[in-house]
């Protein structure tokens, strides 16, 4: 499946899960900041991507989880260098440049997850 085909299917997934228009679903749109996704929407998106692409997504693989439970990763509400390294290693489908070069607050992590992140993830899963 080509990257364009994956993108088109992701547009439909987000249209169904978030009630947004497909033209709002641009590659750089942030799921939370631009498309209004909330925590339960992430689970909805995972389920819909699994069904659409016939793949299995273990919990925590597509979206980060349990970060705040590890003091080595988060201190005083901010992502540590160790936490950032861990995220970059585990979640190669997400571009964390904005976090690395700007606000390290954990509440900003979700903003880094874009439509492109989902396309990257599906491309990787289908490729493997």
């Amino acid at each position: 499946m080509s990257r364009d085909e994956i993108f088109e299917k992701i547009q439909t997934v987000l249209d169904d899960a978030l009630g947004v228009d497909e033209d709002e679903v641009t590659p750089n749109a942030s799921l939370t900041a631009d498309l209004g996704a909330e925590s339960i929407d992430f689970l909805d998106i995972v389920f819909r991507i699994e069904k659409t692409f016939d793949i299995k997504i273990p919990q925590g693989e597509l979206f980060p989880e349990g970060l705040t439970e590890n003091p080595e990763w988060v201190a005083d509400g901010n992502l540590t260098d160790e936490g950032l390294s861990m995220l970059k290693e585990r979640m190669g489908h997400v571009n964390f440049d904005a976090i690395e070069n700007g606000d390290r607050n954990v509440s900003k992590i979700a903003d880094s997850i874009t439509v492109d992140s989902l396309v990257n993830f599906v491309e990787m899963k289908l490729g493997s």
């Binding site: 925590s39 339960i40 992430f42 689970l43 909805d44 979206f63 989880e65 349990g66 705040t68 439970e69």
Partner: peptide, 12 residues
């Protein structure tokens, strides 16, 4: 509908 198992919610 979507249901959450709230003891396992992502927000912790």
């Amino acid at each position: 509908l979507m249901f959450s198992h709230i003891d396992n919610n992502m927000a912790g």
